[in-house]
């Protein structure tokens, strides 16, 4: 079980890449998912993508001839990390919910 918290950015990047997406697509999708709250900056996203590729949590898809944009997709390993993180977030959320009830 992976028990180290992912950054908000990495969490949303992995969640976005359950479908193939290029860099700009990820930024747009994360903006959409977070209702405009999380705006990934290009440099930060680029660094995160490279780290995730190195870790083998995502892969770059073979480039199509007429497209210069590289697309990425989550791997099996990435899927595992993502579901572990969702479980961890659920725990955080459930415990917080009980706290609110007690008020």
């Amino acid at each position: 079980m992976q028990n180290i918290a992912l950054t908000e950015g990495v969490y949303y990047i992995l969640l976005s890449l359950t479908k193939p997406m290029h860099g700009y697509g990820i930024i747009q999708n994360v903006l959409f998912l977070s209702k405009g709250r999380v705006h990934l900056a290009a440099g930060t996203l680029y660094g995160a993508i490279n780290s995730l590729l190195e870790k083998g949590w995502i892969v770059a898809l073979p480039e199509e001839k007429d497209s210069r944009k590289k697309e990425y997709l989550i791997t099996e390993k990435g899927n595992e990390v993502l579901s572990d993180e969702i479980k961890r977030l659920k725990e955080l959320y459930e415990n917080g919910k009980d706290f609110l009830k007690g008020e």
Binding site: H39, A41, G43
Partner: peptide
Amino acid sequence: EGSFELYSDNSSKIKQ
């Protein structure tokens, strides 16, 4: 076209 930043989190700002 929206706000423009190159780095949006602390760890990438630190790296820079």
